[in-house]
C-alpha cells in the first residue's frame, strides 16, 4: 500500500488564507447592518403632524408629500383628534426636507379639481391625492394645521374691493383682464354686512397697478354676450375663450385718468360694458418687468467652485 502510493504523483501543498477570509463575511454582514442603521437613524427626517379638516382621499399609509413635484415625505398614519374636529395626519419628511418643518410652512392637499374654467391636479385621479406645501421660515415645529385649499400665490399687488349685486359665475381666482390681458384675479368674496351686495376681494398685480385708476370702470366679462337685433342680426362676443367657461372681470380706464388706485379701493362692478368704455385708450406707462418675475426665469445658481 505504502509503496504503491509512492509511485503516485504528489499533491502540492500551498498556503491558503481562505479559512481566515471566511470570517470577513460575518464582519461584512455586520458592516451592512451598521450602514442601514446609520442611514436610518442619523439621516432621519422629522416626523410631523398635520391637522386636516378632512383627509378624504389621502391613503392611510402611503400618500406622498411633494414639493415642486418631488417626493419629500410620506404619510405614516392618520387618526381623529380626541375632539373629533380634525384628522391628525402623521407624516415623515425626508432628511433633505427637514428644513420644511418650520412654523409658517403651509400644507394643503392636492386633489383632482374640475371647476368651471380650471382643471387642476388631473394626475391625482390616477396617482391618488397628495400633500404639498409652501415653506415657511419660522422656528422649527412639528405640528401644522392644513389649509382647506391651495393658497393663492402671494405676489405684490394692489388689492381692492368690487361691489356687485350678484356673484354670477365668479369664483376665487377668476381672472381680471385689461384689453384681454390677465392682470389680476379674484382672491375671495363674501356677502356685505347688510347682505345687499356681494363684496369681491381682488387684486391687480404690481406690474399692472398703474392701469388701475380711481375712475376706472369694471364690468363682468364672463360668458358669451349674445345680442339679437332686428336690423343688426345676431352678434356673439366674448372676452376670451377662458372667460366663456370661467367668467371674468374686465376693466377700462378713461383717458382723463385720475390718481392710481391704492390698496382698499372700492369699485362698482357693472353687469355689462358701456360701448364708450371700449373706446377709451389712455397711454399709461407701466413699471416694466417686476423683479420677482426676473428671478423666476433665471437659471438656478450653480456653485462654480
Amino acid at each position: 500500500m505504502s509503496e504503491k502510493s509512492h509511485a503516485l504523483p504528489k499533491a502540492k501543498i500551498a498556503r491558503s488564507y481562505l479559512t481566515w477570509f471566511i470570517w470577513l463575511i460575518p464582519v461584512a454582514a455586520v458592516g451592512l447592518c451598521v450602514f442601514f442603521v446609520v442611514r436610518d437613524v442619523i439621516f432621519k427626517g422629522p416626523t410631523i403632524t398635520i391637522y386636516f379638516q378632512s383627509a378624504d382621499g389621502l391613503e392611510q399609509e402611503n400618500s406622498p408629500i411633494k414639493y415642486r413635484g418631488a417626493n419629500i415625505g410620506q404619510i405614516h398614519g392618520m387618526k381623529l383628534t380626541p375632539d373629533k374636529q380634525f384628522v391628525a395626519v402623521t407624516a415623515k419628511l425626508d432628511y433633505t426636507a427637514r428644513e420644511f418643518a418650520r412654523q409658517g410652512t403651509e400644507f394643503w392637499m392636492v386633489q383632482p379639481e374640475v371647476k368651471v374654467g380650471s382643471i387642476k391636479g388631473l394626475r391625482t385621479i390616477v396617482s391618488g391625492n397628495y400633500i404639498t406645501l409652501e415653506p415657511g421660515h419660522g422656528p422649527p415645529t412639528n405640528e401644522f394645521v392644513a389649509l382647506a385649499e391651495a393658497p393663492v400665490e402671494p405676489v405684490k399687488a394692489v388689492e381692492f374691493t368690487l361691489l356687485m349685486d350678484d356673484l354670477g359665475s365668479l369664483q376665487k381666482q377668476t381672472a381680471i383682464f385689461y384689453r384681454g390681458v390677465q392682470v389680476g384675479e379674484v382672491l375671495d368674496f363674501r356677502l356685505s354686512d347688510d347682505s345687499k351686495h356681494v363684496l369681491v376681494h381682488a387684486r391687480i398685480r404690481e406690474e399692472y397697478a398703474p392701469l388701475l385708476r380711481v375712475n376706472s370702470k369694471f364690468w363682468n366679462a364672463g360668458g358669451i354676450n349674445f345680442h339679437f337685433g332686428l336690423l343688426s342680426g345676431a352678434e356673439i362676443s366674448a372676452e376670451s375663450a377662458q372667460t366663456v367657461v370661467s367668467g371674468g372681470i374686465a376693466f377700462a380706464t378713461p383717458p382723463d385718468y385720475g390718481d392710481a388706485a391704492t390698496n382698499g379701493a372700492v369699485f362698482q362692478l357693472n353687469d355689462k360694458e358701456d360701448d364708450e368704455w371700449k373706446k377709451w385708450n389712455p397711454a399709461i406707462p407701466l413699471h416694466g418687468v417686476p423683479e420677482a418675475q426676473k428671478e423666476k426665469s433665471s437659471l438656478p445658481q450653480v456653485n462654480s467652485k
Binding site: S5, H6, L8, P9, K10, A11, K12, I13, A14, R15, S16, Y17, L18, T19, W20, I22
Partner: peptide, 28 residues
Amino acid sequence: VQGVDDVPEGCVAKCARCNFQIFHRRIS
C-alpha cells in the same frame, strides 16, 4: 489519483496536474 501528505494548519493541497484544490474531507 495522487498521494497527499499531511496538510499543515493554514495550508491546502493542490492537484499536481490541474492545480485545483483537492481534499479528502471538506476543509475547515
